[in-house]
Nucleic acid binder design. Structure first.
Lengths: 156, 156
DNA sequence: AGAAGGTCTTTGCTTGCGCAAGTATTCCGG
DNA sequence: CCGGAATACTTGCGCAAGCAAAGACCTTCT
């Protein structure tokens, strides 16, 4: 009945970092989402899907890669793409060489929609996050947290 | 027809910081939540409610203050406390001097539950977040993001 | 007092999203 | 070439959570 070794409790710095991460994220995202939703009728997740697509070669991505990029479950992405497709912002395309995979492709309409939403998103990110941080802090965050958000993006 | 002045686009550092924040948060929280849920049957939000209560004077907090602490909408907190109360982990108590306010108070059973979940949560925070960061990075994150998660906790 | 207006919490309704199971397709050992 | 395992996506279902409105209560002004 040996129990797994207990971790040492969080010291003050560790506690502060952990809380800062979840609290700040929640607040920033909540505000950003509210603005994007009310001014442009787009979810933050939807925006990010469009944004990722627009930055990809041929403006399309495999469903599974896209899911990893926006950190959404497969089923979650399916529904989201369903909606975006219903709005004509995205199109599904089957892969020619592997009939299992589906590409989500940004339509022209989707691209225009993204361009419309871009300023709102940009302003929000600045107002709610970046304006509160110094360049040094920005660099520190990117360096510290960046690696935590990575997992091999189907390097096949 | 003058449009509001557009913000300058995000440079690479800003972009990296923003993405790092949302991606890392999503991944860390997702994993932590899965562990806590499967091993202890507690949502992360539920855990944090219990944790905040246990650290408060008399182990109780006003609903609205608690909502701010865990960054949840008022209605969201009501439902969550409903469940916790149904499980006997928390009790509601009306305030004697102002009948509008309700306190959520940690029960003995709730405290024990929290103690049981604590090691799992602790291990998760270490494994998924803290172990990947240096002390300097921890300090930088706390300092940079800490202020973003604050709003006057009813200093009445 | 009484009414008007603000504050705190709770309900009605709706949506987003994860897990588990299902379907379609590809890959691989025999 | 066939059958089993693996992969990629999609549906069934349930739960968590937000908004808007309602209900309960305090405060203040007339």
């Amino acid at each position: 009945m040996s129990r797994p070794p207990a971790s040492p409790p969080l010291d003050e710095r560790e506690m502060a970092a952990w809380h800062a991460l979840i609290r700040s994220h929640a607040r920033v995202v909540r505000r950003l989402e509210a603005e994007l939703e009310s001014e442009q009728g787009l979810t933050l997740q939807a925006y990010e899907v469009l944004a990722h697509l627009s930055e990809s070669p041929e403006r399309r991505l495999r469903m599974s890669d896209l899911a990893a990029l926006v950190v959404l479950s497969p089923s979650g992405l399916t529904r989201l793409v369903d909606q975006l497709a219903a709005d004509g912002l995205v199109e599904r395309a089957r892969c020619a060489t592997d009939a299992r995979v589906v590409y989500a492709a940004l339509t022209e309409k989707g691209f225009e929609r993204l361009q419309g939403a871009y300023p709102v998103h940009l302003r929000g990110v600045r107002r709610h996050l970046i304006d509160h941080l110094t360049p040094r802090q920005l660099a520190a965050i990117a360096e510290a947290l960046g690696p935590l958000g990575v997992d091999c993006p189907t390097a096949s």
